[in-house]
């Protein structure tokens, strides 16, 4: 049982390291790293503090603590993935508008040049 929590602890440390390294190398923007960092830290704290996890488990009525941890992480990641879809949609909108705008400007430059 507890070995499972050790695994998640190690995983969250790996995640944390990955995000920090990516940040340092500017592979990820700060504003997009915050949610990953929070998720990793939360996962780490929960896997290290068995009492807290047990309390949540008793309170929610989930059969056992590791399952609680997985449910929590699962939910957090689901929310984050959804957020990414929202962000991607915004980027797509901006990108479409930009592409159209550039095409129109190019068109007008060309027709002025031809006069």
């Amino acid at each position: 049982m507890d070995s499972l929590l050790h695994v998640t602890a190690v995983l969250s440390v790996v995640l944390l390291a990955m995000v920090l390294i990516s940040l340092r190398r500017a592979h990820i923007r700060v504003e997009y790293s915050v949610s990953w960092l929070l998720a990793a830290v939360a996962m780490l704290l929960l896997s290290l503090s068995r009492p807290v996890l047990d309390a949540i488990t008793r309170w929610t009525g989930v059969p056992d603590s590791p399952l609680t941890l997985f449910l929590i992480t699962g939910t957090v990641f689901l929310v984050m993935f959804f957020r990414f879809s929202v962000i991607i949609s915004h980027l797509r909108d901006d990108n479409v508008a930009l592409t159209q705008r550039v095409a129109m400007l190019e068109y007008r430059v060309r027709s002025f040049e031809q006069e």
Binding site: V96, T99, Q100, V102, A103, M104, E106, Y107
Partner: peptide
């Protein structure tokens, strides 16, 4: 009106409407 990258039919038609 040349689009710099592929937008799909709707984005393409809309570019025409905008212009």
């Amino acid at each position: 009106l040349p689009l710099a990258h592929h937008l799909g039919l709707g984005g393409c038609v809309q570019a025409g409407y905008k212009l």
